[in-house]
Write a protein that binds this DNA or RNA. Structure first.
Lengths: 213, 213
DNA sequence: CGAGTAATTATGCAAGTGTATAATTTCTCC
DNA sequence: GGAGAAATTATACACTTGCATAATTACTCG
């Protein structure tokens, strides 16, 4: 009955890093950044803690890598759906829909966002990632609104477009936040419905009709 | 040169608890809940750590007390301004204004909200406080919208009112979030301006005009 | 002004933290 | 199939954490 040294299998650096990052995101979502301990992450990834040091020079570096992984995934999820759709109005509607349905709207996604916020505000590298992601979102939304308004024969000046983009982004963010914070407070499709109506009311564009082929 | 025992002054339980809570909120905003250590809090409150145990049976209890203190303060700040104003439309406008100006819109307030979120999702007592506060906000907003629409001669059914309240709450929350996350991204009064316009567009009420005496 | 009491400080402890380093195992390549 | 190298495990260390408990101080009240 002697304690035997643990068996293991060698994996590619890529696979191991990804596994460690995913385990990190799980624990950060559950317990916050400080609650995601090196030992806990290693256990979740079914690995011993020394390995983390082998792939990341510090816990800090792993956290940053996990944050960037998460942010990239969120933008992909939001923009992938309607990227190829036809009219700008249809793409705008797809953007709203994608932003207000799972897995974007999700308690875990919100928990991750909140958990990272402190570090985002302090760490320069994470701050830069955050600002870049936010600007990407809003610029893309602003461009979509601009084209959709032109399509509708009601082009708007730059200052006005900026306000509309900020406002639409805010409704979407607010609904995303509330949907993640109180998952049982809204019926199926309710957030999408309210999101469409609100963006429509703010921009004056009709987003309720069926998508054109 | 002997180490002398530290001098101190006795304070009322009320004052000490409040000081400890304020110190806790500072540290939670800066470093998150786990980063707010008992020793750090004691130092910030200019007290030794043993005293915390004297007033709160555990760190957990202090955190909960700090959270409730913060939430109460936020609701007071939001509703105090326009409580006595005349028309429902004026009160609605005051609500928007109060929600979108400092100290409600503030990086620290956002950091606190984010830092507490994890515990809010797990701890039943904190969850209850959160849901109660959210419901209070939204019900109050919904009532305000209902009366304002009646004033304007356009009463709305309950289902519609619910949607309008959710939507308006979302814009306000979203703008609050973005104002706190990116304090330098918006000009003075810009959030209030956009907030008024958006709530106006969603509800169909005019909030841009000057307040009536 | 002096005793009693509650507030406050001081000290200690066991568990958990990130990180460094040594010991071993798995795989590749000849 | 065996040597070399890299991946992985194991162990140790200094430090921080929350909490418990003992020692002291400041204030109250007769």
């Amino acid at each position: 009955m002697t304690d035997e040294r643990r068996k293991f299998k060698r994996e590619s650096a890529e696979a191991r890093k990804e596994a460690l990052i995913l385990a990190t995101l799980e624990l950060v979502a559950e317990n916050g950044v400080r609650g995601a301990t090196v030992r806990g992450i290693a256990e979740r990834a079914d690995v011993t803690q020394g390995l983390i040091r082998h792939y990341f020079s510090s816990k800090e570096e792993l956290i940053i890598a996990a944050y960037e992984h998460h942010m990239n995934q969120m933008t992909d999820l939001t923009f992938a759906p309607g990227a190829a759709a036809g009219s700008a109005r249809a793409r705008l509607r797809a953007f709203v829909d994608g932003s207000l349905t799972p897995p974007v709207v999700d308690p875990r996604a919100l928990a991750l966002w909140a958990s990272f916020l402190n570090k985002v505000q302090n760490d320069p590298q994470m701050k830069e990632t955050h600002q870049r992601t936010y600007a990407y979102f809003r610029d893309r939304l602003e461009a979509l609104i601009a084209v959709a308004l032109e399509e509708a024969g009601r082009p708007a000046p730059a200052a006005r477009l900026r306000q509309l983009a900020i406002a639409c982004n805010a409704v979407i963010d607010g609904l995303w936040l509330e949907g993640g914070a109180l998952p049982d407070a809204f019926g199926a499709g309710e957030l999408v419905e309210i999101g469409r109506q609100s963006v429509a009311a703010i921009t004056g564009l009709d987003l309720t009709q069926e998508a054109e082929t």
